[in-house]
């Protein structure tokens, strides 16, 4: 299990390859990558986080996922700092003997990362900068777990 909080980019393909390599106890690997989306006029996105809390909060989410599903491994990488449109923000990978557990755990981790990992996004556009508001739908998504 690995949680990495970093400013520098990550190589999504290489991370997926490394994560899936050499496993005989695993029948399924699910990966997700989050990308900076430009809905029109986005110059940059700045991601702030709470250094003392971020890794431990995400590690606790991974630990909970391990109690709920038969995971053989999990990886979370989340970036902070300034990012441009199209850049990769974060990724989640889960490995399990069977795909249902890998899919469910990846969705669980994504839902919790959205609303419970201490990150905040600020978007810079031609009109100025604004903090991205949390979506009610993201909060509601937690109730299904």
């Amino acid at each position: 299990m690995s949680v990495r909080i970093q400013q520098e980019p990550f190589d999504f393909g290489a991370e997926c390859d490394r994560f899936a390599a050499g496993r005989s106890d695993t029948g399924a690997v699910v990966t997700f990558c989050g990308i900076v989306r430009d809905d029109g006029g986005l110059h940059a996105m700045e991601i702030e986080h709470y250094p003392g809390m971020t890794a431990s909060a995400i590690t606790a989410m991974v630990d909970t996922a391990r109690t709920r599903w038969a995971l053989t491994d999990a990886l979370v990488i989340h970036r902070f700092g300034p990012l441009g449109p199209g850049e990769r923000i974060m990724m989640v990978a889960t490995a399990a003997p069977h795909r249902a557990d890998a899919f469910a755990a990846a969705e669980y981790l994504m839902d919790y990362l959205k609303s419970r990992a201490p990150f905040w996004k600020k978007e810079r556009t031609a009109e100025g900068a604004h903090w991205v508001a949390a979506k009610e739908a993201d909060e509601d998504a937690l109730s299904r777990w």
Binding site: M90, L113, K114, S115, A117, P118, F119, W120, W131
Partner: peptide, 12 residues
């Protein structure tokens, strides 16, 4: 020892 205040989080 430490108290932190912040808006609702927007990770992912």
């Amino acid at each position: 020892r430490e108290v932190a205040f912040f808006p609702p989080m927007t990770g992912g």
